[in-house]
Design a protein around this nucleic acid. Structure first.
Lengths: 185, 185
DNA sequence: CAAATCGCTCAACGATTGTTGAGTGTACGG
DNA sequence: CCGTACACTCAACAATCGTTGAGCGATTTG
């Protein structure tokens, strides 16, 4: 029942990271102040600096995705289904870390780099499974399509998307994705 | 050859607006400082305030789209073609005003409102031309699809999209759009 | 031609921000 | 049980930001 010192530290660090993720996710990098993160974590602003060194470093740490365990429940077999899962169009939605990155990707250079890297990885992975010499372009378009729906749904909150059940979105999106990926499968 | 006083004022106002649009478009609202806008326009920061009242008001004015003349050259007849044109996937790309709005839409509340309004209008317009009771959802998805490609292409600069000629993107995107809009036409 | 008007600049204020260094109290190791 | 180490706070600094009010000089007006 006694809480060791190292444990206290880890606990504080996690509370700060959680608060930072939440704030970064719904206000973006610039509008999120270290003081606000500290307040939300019930901690002094100086402690945040002491643990993470700078606001930028805090952001980087907050955005680092918790390693997704391979072979999750819904595990889809076809490429389109896997893509729909990856970008959170199914199941419970995106992680706070991903949302934080997406929220700032248009206005914060480091977030843009992270987004380019993440999306680039997805593009390469999908492109490798497609035939033809426009495979990469098709993959990039398919990834951008899901990015757009995610942005419209999770970040902008477009009414028709917010109101629609996720399976309905999935159902309408799948044929479009298949058309993009080359009509095969 | 003499420049009247009113003319000088209009000229300065336009230079400020142009500079503001350019800076808002590539750094977003928060990272764009009034001092930077003034410097780019060759003017004192106080003048910007005097003309526009506040940074927010400057942003609103800078984002106001120049009224698009109806019936432009490329004038496409089918719905998919018109959508592709509207979101700048064809021709010369988006206006600086639109880019400025899109750049800030995830992090600046007023820009988000503007984006929701603009995209909502497009959704209504497209949805009105579709049959079925999921018309609005289909329209919202189609609009989000183009939003995603625009974001990936113009704002994030994803390599495969940057390198591809616009007609190629158009060619690959059209079947996907048609699949989303209901397979008709 | 005198006076009012107007485009425009200068200098500064107040608030907020990220960041820092000194200090405090308590768990820890010997 | 004592001294060290460490989690944590307090107070402040320096820079930057949006914003303001006074003032200058040229142009317009009567």
């Amino acid at each position: 029942m006694t809480i060791t010192r190292a444990e206290r530290r880890l606990r504080s660090e996690r509370r700060i990271l959680d608060a930072a993720r939440a704030l970064f996710a719904d206000r973006g990098f610039e509008r999120t102040t270290i003081r606000a993160v500290a307040a939300a974590a019930g901690v002094d602003p100086a402690l945040v600096m002491q643990y993470f060194g700078s606001k930028q470093e805090l952001f980087s740490r907050a955005v680092q995705a918790v390693p997704t365990k391979e072979g999750e429940p819904g595990e889809a077999r076809d490429l389109a289904g896997r893509m729909l899962e990856t970008l959170g169009m199914k199941l419970g939605g995106l992680s706070p870390a991903s949302l934080a990155m997406l929220r700032s990707m248009l206005t914060h250079p480091e977030a843009a780099d992270a987004a380019r890297t993440a999306l680039g990885g997805q593009i390469d992975r999908v492109g490798a499974e497609l035939p033809g010499d426009d495979a990469r372009l098709r993959a990039a378009l398919a990834t951008s399509v899901l990015l757009g729906v995610t942005v419209g749904h999770q970040l902008l909150g477009l009414d028709p998307l917010r109101d629609a059940p996720r399976e309905e979105i999935d159902r309408l999106l799948r044929p479009a994705l298949l058309a993009l990926l080359g009509e095969r499968e």
